[in-house]
Design a protein around this nucleic acid. Structure first.
Lengths: 140, 140
DNA sequence: TCCTTAAAGATAATCATTATTAATTAGAAA
DNA sequence: TTTCTAATTAATAATGATTATCTTTAAGGA
């Protein structure tokens, strides 16, 4: 199990440790863009001895190595996303919920737009939509 | 001077204080999305007695009252933007520079897209593009 | 000018994140 | 399998942005 993840670590010359596997699994399991604190809390059960510093360091490592993405938030507390496919985010102004929003058609429209309209003196690496609003009641 | 700003405060029933004027002026003057720290540093000259807590409180107040916008960043340190017109941001991956990117045509394209393609169970309030990349050398 | 209350100043407290350093362990080599 | 060593982790302290508290000040209406 975790073959993809373990392979990716090895490819990059990184050791496969118990902690790294546990933290990655936790992000996958928690879904909805957990904070470092969410991850630490969740790990308390299964791995009560993984230290806080390790979680932060490992998360950083994952971001640097394209295993996770960082999600910026309104209050500055970082959250993490295991979905690597290009996608956008829906930010709820009432709760702190962040949902993925995948929309290939929209992404294509935007990419095509920038193919035709280059930004002067700026080389685009990535484009992300932050869609702010409210989820309707009764939805999850 | 500062009529717009002073009026806006009064409209909301907020007092026009020396500190608020100074902080607002500073954000205008510094441009490029200053942090609270940038603002505090700048104010040291002209208003050495404005306290740190006041700067944070006033910035929050301005954001709540639509006089400034908060700009999320990669490291979680908040920055502030006096440009209220709808616009997007260019994030430089090499420096911490954030530039405004105004593009009415693009905004229209996106807005039209969402008029035709509603997001299920989500009411959009605002859409912002985070364009990550690199400024070419020799540019400012 | 006076009075009331919101706002500011000073300071301490909080909390997410980072740094430090000694102990542990993954994984290569023997 | 055992040994070795650098990379990794744990524990802890430190940092730094932001917030809370509480006393003093001052904006703006009467």
């Amino acid at each position: 199990m975790n073959t993809f993840f373990r392979e990716k670590l090895k490819q990059k010359g990184l050791k496969v440790t118990l902690q790294r596997v546990a933290i990655y699994d936790t992000v996958l399991h928690l879904k909805n863009h957990p904070t470092a604190e969410n991850i630490i809390e969740y790990l308390k059960n299964s791995h009560p001895n993984i230290s806080v510093g390790t979680v932060y360091k490992v998360l950083d490592l994952f971001v640097e190595n394209d295993l996770l993405k960082k999600v910026k938030t309104e209050n500055g507390i970082m959250r993490y996303d295991a979905v690597l496919a290009n996608h956008h985010h829906l930010y709820c102004t009432e709760t702190d919920r962040i949902e993925d929003y995948e929309d290939e058609e929209l992404s294509n429209i935007i990419n095509n737009y920038f193919k035709k309209n280059k930004i002067q003196k700026f080389k685009i690496q990535d484009i992300k939509l932050q869609i702010t609003g409210k989820f309707n009641n009764n939805f999850k």
